[in-house]
Design a protein around this nucleic acid. Structure first.
Lengths: 135, 135
DNA sequence: CCATTTCACTACTGTGTAGCAATATAATAA
DNA sequence: TTATTATATTGCTACACAGTAGTGAAATGG
């Protein structure tokens, strides 16, 4: 991840001259990469999961995840900046929630794909061991 | 990303004792995080995009992306191990293809979400500047 | 056989960042 | 005001990894 210049609104898609299929601009790819990167850490996924059941304040998240306070705070900042979660101050506490329910849809999709992949993988291992035994 | 212990097949979901909603295990979250991490680099997304049109060998990918050869090779290794792309040797050349079309679905989903998010963001900026002018 | 092409691997450097501890800030209570 | 609780931030260390250059290996052509 060599660079992170200040981000301005950019066109996410552009039309190629030879019609039809649209091609993603490098800027769009960079946005996508940043989005995926935010979700590429177990701690942040833990936080996201803990928010699946509903709003929580930082202390509750700390208790549920077992992560350190500074750590959670930093991750929440990243998640907020990425637009994944939303921040709302209520009295002394700060509550966070999933900003876009599409995230759950996405996670389910990935989870299903990974499950299938894992099953296929273990099947292959089974076949391998069977081949070895029959030798 | 502190650790990367050798991965064995694991249960991706487990049932919580108090019924209903299933909770993701730490192992499952780790798998998800790894998957997202593979997609969290512009170079790898470029490679994925270049494969959208169909199979390509390494040289073709290098030409299309402008990346270095060693670099592309390393990224392709990661993508292959993650099960994102599949490898096939044909004579001297090695061809790669997207292993699971679900990836396109996923990318489209993310792309749409980011587009909407970007639009909302720019709208907010517009409103802000209007507020400033009317002062 | 040697030369070329295609790809993979290794070693290295620089950058980003996770986690921790300590400190700072903010909001409320006493 | 001061004290307390809840978050945020900063400074630090350690580690992961992107990119590069050089080398290795395997297939093909001459």
């Amino acid at each position: 991840m060599p660079k992170k210049p200040p981000k301005k609104p950019v066109a996410v898609q552009e039309r190629t001259e030879k019609g039809g299929i649209s091609k993603l601009t490098p800027e769009a790819l960079s946005l996508m990469a940043d989005f995926f990167k935010v979700l590429s850490e177990v701690s942040r996924l833990q936080i996201v999961c803990s928010l699946k059941a509903g709003d929580k304040n930082v202390t509750e998240i700390i208790e549920e995840t077992g992560l350190g306070q500074a750590n959670v705070s930093k991750h929440l900042k990243m998640l907020t900046q990425a637009g994944v979660v939303a921040r709302e101050q209520r009295g002394v506490c700060v509550y966070y929630r999933i900003a876009n329910p599409f995230l759950f849809e996405l996670c389910d999709l990935v989870c299903d794909a990974l499950t299938i992949q894992a099953e296929q993988h273990s099947q292959q291992l089974q076949q391998l061991s069977q081949l070895r035994q029959s030798r």
